[in-house]
């Protein structure tokens, strides 16, 4: 096995974004098998971090920095992976579009959810804060995501989660997506009321929810 895979794994565990990018660039430059780099390097690393998190040994900065390093490195490999280089193929566990709803500019909770989903093997597309329903849909269609995850921290912006579900119904595309919601003032009751496919109180529960929905 190429020693670089172990280095990539360690870079992810350390949450070293710069090193992850550097190693990914080396993979491309030296024409090392990118699928193996993903499977034996990036995924092995993030799995390790995910395990430590579940055991209560890792804390948020560990997981979030590892997820950032993973994303940065994978972005470098995107081109060669898309070109079909390497032996076999690489499959993520599912694609998720994640964002904070229109009118709301809070993003920390969302970022935590994104990191934990990444650590659990999902491919997360974070579209950022203050995002309209159509922005969620546009991104999902672009990348082929099935889950739209919408965050809201304020009682005044919760209604934008409802707007998202209504928008899908109005466009007759409701069945194409699973909508999940979360954020401080939200509740299971609110999720049921607006017709969301799921609600989670914590980031860990959001991971479980996505696993169930994509099964």
């Amino acid at each position: 096995m190429n020693a670089i895979f172990e280095e990539i794994k360690e870079a992810i565990i350390d949450g070293d974004e710069e090193l992850a990018v550097e190693l990914a660039e080396k993979v491309v430059a030296e024409k090392i098998d990118p699928v193996q780099a993903v499977q034996l390097g990036f995924i092995k690393g993030i799995e390790e971090v995910g395990k430590s998190w579940t055991n209560g040994e890792a804390f948020l900065p560990d997981v979030m920095m590892a997820a950032d390093a993973m994303k940065a490195g994978m972005d470098v490999l995107e081109g060669v992976l898309a070109a079909g280089e390497g032996e076999g193929s690489y499959e993520d566990k599912g694609k998720i579009v994640l964002g904070t709803v229109e009118g709301d500019i809070h993003d920390i909770g969302k970022n935590i959810v994104g990191a934990l989903l990444t650590a659990a093997g999902f491919k997360v597309y974070d579209i950022g804060i203050d995002q309209k329903a159509e922005d969620f849909v546009a991104k999902a269609d672009e990348v082929g995501a099935k889950i739209l995850a919408a965050s809201s921290l304020l009682t005044t912006t919760m209604k934008s989660q409802k707007v998202l579900v209504e928008y899908l119904s109005d466009q007759n595309i409701r069945d194409n997506y699973k909508v999940i919601i979360g954020g401080g003032p939200t509740s299971k009751k609110w999720g049921d009321e607006i017709g969301a496919d799921g609600w989670a109180e914590t980031a860990d529960e959001a991971v479980e929810l996505c696993k169930q929905l994509l099964n």
């Binding site: 209560g56 804390f59 948020l60 900065p61 920390i108 909770g109 935590i112 914590t202 980031a203």
Partner: peptide, 8 residues
Amino acid sequence: VTDMSTGS
């Protein structure tokens, strides 16, 4: 402070 196990 932030609880570093949950982010809350």
